[in-house]
Structures are given as structure tokens and as C-alpha cells.
């Protein structure tokens, strides 16, 4: 599949807020696409962790959103856009342990304030833009090693 160096694989998943039945399905699907494309294992692991956290944020905090991915020989890029109420203070939201999750979400083991920090730790680039009332866009990139560079890593 990756024989052609110009190959780009793209797709989009739609996410529905509070739909805990399908929560995680988009991340699992992305993982299996990356596996089929024979992306290196550590990049798949990091993409799976980051995508799950971002997907769960949309499920937990917003009415709806989408996850768009593009995979090139150089990187995996995933963009999450939602229709939520936005993040007022992004720096505060990035603080480990900070969460606005209600009790019932915390009882499920979510809302520990580790989501955004986990995304940051597992990606090479992460951008968040948000306007209160206008939703949030989160984008991350995971760089892929080129096969030829293997011996340097």
C-alpha cells in the first residue's frame, strides 16, 4: 500500500456527543488503517493514544464533532473539530489534573485531567484553537520515520 511514495490516505469519522456505545470506534479504525499501511509500531501506538483521548473529549464534552485523518509517508495528521462550547483557557486545560468533567464522567474513569497532556506527550506537533461558543479544533501530527533513516534511530 505504501509502495507509492506519493500515497496519501485520507478519511473522516463523525462523532456524536454522549454516544458511549461507539466511543473509541474511530480511534480503533484509525489504528487498523495504520496497521494495514504497515506504519511503524511506535507511531501506531502514539496515534492510538492521542486519537482516543481527542475522540473521548468530543464524546464527553460536545454535542458532535468530526475526526479527519491524513496519512502520508512522512506523517500521520489528525484534525478534530467539534461543535462544543469551546475552551476558555487553553493553558489551564493543558494542565495535568485539570478537568471540568461532571461526576458521572469521572465515575467512568474519564475526566482525570490527563487527556490533553497525553495527546501532547504522544505527538510531535499539537495545536488547539478554540473560541468560547464556537467550538474547538485540535490538530496533531505524528512524524513517520522514512525507511532509509532506520539506521539513524
Amino acid at each position: 500500500m505504501t509502495q507509492n511514495k506519493e500515497t496519501t490516505m485520507e478519511g473522516v469519522f463523525f462523532l456524536t456527543g454522549k454516544d458511549f456505545t461507539n466511543a473509541g470506534a474511530a480511534s480503533c479504525e484509525l489504528k487498523s488503517i495504520l496497521e494495514k499501511m504497515e506504519v511503524e509500531h511506535s507511531a501506531i501506538r502514539r496515534a492510538a493514544i492521542a486519537a482516543f483521548e481527542a475522540e473521548m473529549n468530543i464524546i464527553i464534552y460536545t454535542p458532535a464533532g468530526m475526526m479527519k485523518y491524513s496519512i502520508t509517508p512522512d506523517h500521520v495528521k489528525v484534525v478534530f473539530q467539534d461543535m462544543g462550547h469551546g475552551i476558555e483557557d487553553i493553558e489551564l486545560a493543558m494542565t495535568e489534573g485539570y478537568s471540568t468533567a461532571p461526576d458521572y464522567i469521572r465515575e467512568m474513569g474519564f475526566g482525570s485531567g490527563m487527556g490533553l497532556p497525553n495527546i501532547k506527550k504522544n505527538t510531535d506537533e499539537m495545536k488547539i484553537s478554540s473560541m468560547p461558543g464556537a467550538g474547538t479544533t485540535l490538530e496533531f501530527i505524528i512524524k513517520l520515520r522514512q525507511e532509509k533513516d532506520n539506521e539513524n534511530l
Partner: peptide, 21 residues
């Protein structure tokens, strides 16, 4: 990878976590 996970969470999202990791 390959770890056994001990938890008291019983809802379905634990399966996604186990599958992803």
C-alpha cells in the same frame, strides 16, 4: 502491550482501551 489490566470499571469503553493498547 500484552499487559493484563485490573480494574473495577465495567462500562464498554474499557474494551476500546484494551483493543487500542
Amino acid at each position: 502491550e500484552g499487559n493484563i489490566w485490573i480494574t473495577l470499571q465495567t462500562h464498554q469503553n474499557i474494551i476500546a482501551v484494551a483493543a487500542l493498547r
